[in-house]
């Protein structure tokens, strides 16, 4: 077996670039959807809001400034190849340093507080990032990252449905969550849905679903069909861009699933704003 050595500084640099890039340059999946929505909408207000969002992406990418002032809390899903040894530092600290450097050097907003209830003191460097690491075969590190704004994060929910609720129960909970969110999470939204696993696994799947490009479908055609049905259903609610009315309340619905217990059917809905910033890198 070959051991691959990676310098911690290389990881820091890659993570830094990843977070700066995702904050300045929106993915082509989102931009395509916004352009299409602008064509589809008929009201002046909805068209005007979408035109502002498209113009905003142009300014952000040209001037290399953040798309949104809420540059989020950094979340990373890591697949770490087990043949890798990190030199000159720890993997965890190398990643945190990359996030720290991105937020300081990249003029991103520092939005993380040290303690959730009592102190709430800004850490001034947007760390710690939330990191989920999975050990996989091989000698590569794959990182799927997002910077999650909290206007939409606050509108998310988990429910422990039971098997008798069926697909109708799943759909109802998703629609209820989107309705409750209404105009608050910066529609048009991306809806990440996690179904199955345990309480926390469903939530992690939902988060991961928000990071999947919206021009891709679930590989199981039954869930792919459900994604389309939910997108249509949500767009019939009429909230529209900025909640001021229109046909585009969501631009994407992504579902991720996992096997679950005989007694359960957990469902998590992670709502993401239209500035759905995500990026994947391989080291």
């Amino acid at each position: 077996m070959n051991i691959r050595k990676i310098n911690a500084a290389e990881i820091t640099e890659a993570v830094k670039k990843m977070f700066m890039d995702m904050n300045y340059y929106i993915g082509s999946d989102i931009l395509t959807a916004l352009n299409k929505a602008e064509q589809t909408e008929t009201s002046d207000t909805a068209k005007s809001v979408l035109a502002q969002l498209i113009e905003n992406h142009k300014i952000a990418s040209e001037e290399e400034v953040p798309i949104c002032q809420d540059t989020g809390m950094a979340v990373l899903f890591v697949e770490y190849g087990q043949n890798i040894v990190i030199e000159n530092g720890s993997f965890e600290e190398a990643v945190q340093e990359g996030v720290r450097r991105a937020y300081i050097d990249g003029y991103l907003r520092k939005s993380v507080v040290s303690d959730p209830v009592f102190d709430r003191i800004n850490t001034k460097d947007n760390t710690p990032a939330v990191i989920y690491t999975e050990i996989v075969p091989g000698d590569q590190i794959k990182i799927l990252g997002g910077c999650k704004g909290f206007g939409s994060e606050n509108m998310s929910a988990v429910k422990m449905l039971t098997p008798s609720a069926g697909i109708e129960g799943v759909k109802q909970f998703i629609y209820d969550t989107v309705k409750y969110a209404g105009p608050n999470p910066c529609p048009p939204i991306v809806v990440g849905i996690g179904i199955g696993g345990t309480f926390e696994k469903a939530a992690m799947l939902a988060k991961k679903a928000t990071l999947r490009p919206i021009d891709t479908d679930n590989s199981d055609e039954r869930y792919a069909a459900l994604e389309k049905k939910l997108l249509d259903g949500i767009n019939q609610m009429g909230y529209g861009p900025a909640g001021l009315g229109g046909k585009t309340t969501a631009i994407g619905v992504n579902i991720e699933t996992f096997p679950t217990h005989i007694a359960g059917m957990p469902v998590a809905v992670n709502i993401c704003c239209h500035a759905a910033r995500h990026k994947e890198i391989t080291i």
Binding site: L53, E55, C273
Partner: peptide, 13 residues
């Protein structure tokens, strides 16, 4: 008043 959420770079102008 409402400003357009997410149009932060545009608004900053």
């Amino acid at each position: 008043f409402g400003a357009v959420g997410g149009a932060a770079a545009l608004i900053s102008k």
